[in-house]
């Protein structure tokens, strides 16, 4: 919650979007929690920082919903880690959530871009 980012241009995630990001990350293959967090940070070009407490809670929630499954395995650098992978149900949810997201982005864009005439368009403060 109160994690201070390494640089100020990182932003916290919107509630609900974390699930989508996790599911998307797992499309590439099974991954452990630390890897998921790092991956989200890296692929958002160091902008989206995941609070680790929230990450694990989200992972647990998704596991409870049977969208992802988990088992203990060994990481690339030979550490014991809990690996999460996408279930068929999770894959289906990903498509649904993604289209939902797209609709949201479009709707937001329609409104915001319309009124964003005199501001810097690159400013991502939300």
């Amino acid at each position: 919650m109160s994690s201070r980012s390494r640089s100020d241009d990182r932003i916290a995630l919107l509630q609900g979007t974390l699930d989508l990001l996790i599911l998307k990350t797992l499309v590439l293959g099974p991954c452990h929690g630390q890897g998921i967090g790092r991956s989200i940070l890296r692929r958002s070009e160091e902008v989206l920082f995941v609070d680790h407490g929230s990450l694990y809670l989200a992972l647990q929630r998704l596991e409870d919903k049977k969208w992802i499954s988990a088992k203990w395995g060994v990481s690339a650098n030979n550490r014991k880690a809990r690996f999460y992978s996408l279930t068929p149900k999770g894959r289906q949810q990903l498509t649904e959530k993604f289209s939902e997201w797209q609709r949201l982005v479009r709707a937001m864009g329609l409104i915001l871009e319309g009124g964003m005439l005199d501001g810097g368009t690159d400013n991502q403060e939300v």
Partner: peptide
């Protein structure tokens, strides 16, 4: 899931992060 299992996962996370 047991709490021990969860604690173990956090430990593993910290180690992986430290490695990185």
């Amino acid at each position: 899931r047991s709490e021990d299992d969860f604690a173990e996962e956090i430990r593993s996370h910290l180690e992986l992060e430290a490695d990185e």
